[in-house]
């Protein structure tokens, strides 16, 4: 593949100078070594240094460069340039449902507040032993598909329930984290965790729309985790 020119339409808003947001049309030439959308965006920024976006690891583990790409949430560093159809501009917008600070940078306070609300840490009130707490490989396996979350917010910001109630609904990312601790055999706070979630908003705003599953760049399944939380609640209630 040789050099080619990519057309972009990018959501721009700088509260310091713009009255309201607008879409900027801009083109950039990429080389065959530029594989990912983030590579192209770095070139874009060299052309116009006022385009603001977050990025760090550029390999899909830090979760910085989540954005809305052609209408779908994803990470720029994991989005192949070859997936974009020729002749159509690539439309980049900030993650939906969160306040925009500037351009593609959103204010994630609400998202992290929900994550923090589920007590995202191991609770075990026994005195720590001198060695590790034992856990069988099978019990450890239960954490797979849960602990890998990178907190990029692709899922929660694609969830209509989170759009309507970001202040009250924990959202898929937070609920996935909640189940990560419920599922951990070393954690002793299962019933408090379930109490904390038994609420028409915090957990039960999830209507199994499953946008979160489609949006997750790490291939995780928050809906499944939420289902397991509900299962546990039923099991303890009946």
């Amino acid at each position: 593949m040789s050099n080619r020119t990519l057309q972009f339409k990018i959501y721009r808003y700088d509260p310091d100078k713009d009255q309201k947001p607008y879409m900027q049309e801009i083109a950039v030439e990429v080389e065959s070594t530029d594989r990912k959308l983030l590579d192209a965006m770095v070139k874009l920024k060299a052309k116009d240094d006022s385009i603001a976006f977050r990025r760090s690891c550029r390999e899909g583990v830090c979760g910085s460069d989540a954005m809305n790409i052609n209408g779908r949430n994803g990470l720029a560093c994991l989005t192949d340039l070859t997936t974009f159809p020729e002749g159509k501009p690539i439309v980049l917008r900030p993650l939906p449902g969160l306040p925009v600070i500037r351009d593609l940078i959103v204010d994630m306070t609400q998202f992290f507040k929900q994550y923090h609300s589920i007590k995202p840490y191991l609770i075990n009130n026994d005195p720590p032993p001198e060695t590790e707490r034992l856990q069988s490989p099978e019990d450890r396996e239960e954490l797979n598909g849960l602990y890998e979350c990178i907190l990029c917010a692709c899922c929660s910001t694609s969830c209509p329930s989170f759009w309507w109630n970001p202040d009250k609904f924990v959202g898929p990312a937070g609920l996935l984290a909640a189940y990560r601790f419920i599922a951990d055999t070393r954690d002793q706070a299962t019933s408090e965790r379930l109490d904390n979630l038994e609420d028409p908003y915090r957990l039960f705003r999830c209507h199994t729309i499953m946008n979160c599953v489609e949006a997750c760049p790490k291939g995780l399944n928050p809906t499944k985790a939420i289902g397991k939380i509900k299962d546990m609640m039923v099991r303890r209630a009946v």
Binding site: N196, E198, D199, P200, Y201, L203, F204
Partner: peptide, 10 residues
């Protein structure tokens, strides 16, 4: 939040 209902309805 924390109305502590929802499971029954669900």
């Amino acid at each position: 939040v924390g109305a502590h209902y929802g499971l029954k309805d669900w």
